[in-house]
Amino acid sequence: MTRRELRGTIGWVEAAGDYEFAPLRIPPGTSRTAAATMLSLQADTGGWELARLQLHADGTRKVILRRRSRLSYLPGPHL
């Protein structure tokens, strides 16, 4: 068996009203601690906060991050 590397994906950052939103997909097999650490780093470096988190039956996490539009000079989300 070969181990394939799974990476999260980030959708387009969309602005709606006073907030910017960035959809993020965290692949199955990522531990809860690792996912929390990734989201914590996004909050610290880019001013993002958690708007919504969905955990699917296959283990995939779909996350929506948001931040105030005035913080758009900060870097976008990254993995």
Rank of each mutant, 00 (worst) to 15 (best):
A34N: 06
D18A: 14
F21L: 06
G46Q: 00
Q54K: 11
R25P: 10
R32A: 12
Y19C: 08
A35S: 11
I64G: 12
G17S: 03
R25L: 15
D58T: 03
R52D: 12
L74P: 14
L41N: 13
I64R: 15
G76K: 15
I64V: 15
W12G: 15
H56G: 11
R67Y: 08
L65S: 12
H78M: 14
S69Y: 02
G46W: 00
I10S: 12
W12L: 15
I26R: 03
A51I: 01
R7K: 14
R3F: 06
G11D: 06
Y73H: 14
Q54N: 13
T45Q: 10
W48V: 03
L74Y: 03
G59A: 03
R3C: 09
T60L: 09
L41H: 07
S72R: 11
V63L: 11
L50D: 05
E49Q: 09
D44K: 07
E49I: 04
R3D: 10
R67C: 14
A22S: 13
R66D: 08
L74Q: 10
S40R: 08
A36S: 10
Q54H: 11
T37F: 04
H78F: 10
E14F: 02
R3W: 01
L74R: 07
R3M: 13
W48H: 00
T37A: 14
R7V: 14
A57L: 09
A22N: 04
R70E: 14
R68F: 09
G47I: 05
A43E: 05
G29P: 04
A43H: 01
A16K: 10
A43D: 00
A22T: 01
I64H: 10
E5C: 10
L24W: 03
R52Q: 13
L74I: 13
Y19D: 10
I26T: 08
G8F: 01
A51C: 06
A16M: 08
R25H: 07
R70P: 12
S72T: 08
D44H: 11
L65P: 14
F21N: 03
A15Y: 00
R4H: 05
S72A: 13
Y19F: 10
G17C: 04
F21Q: 03
L50K: 01
T33A: 15
T30F: 05
T2D: 07
R7F: 09
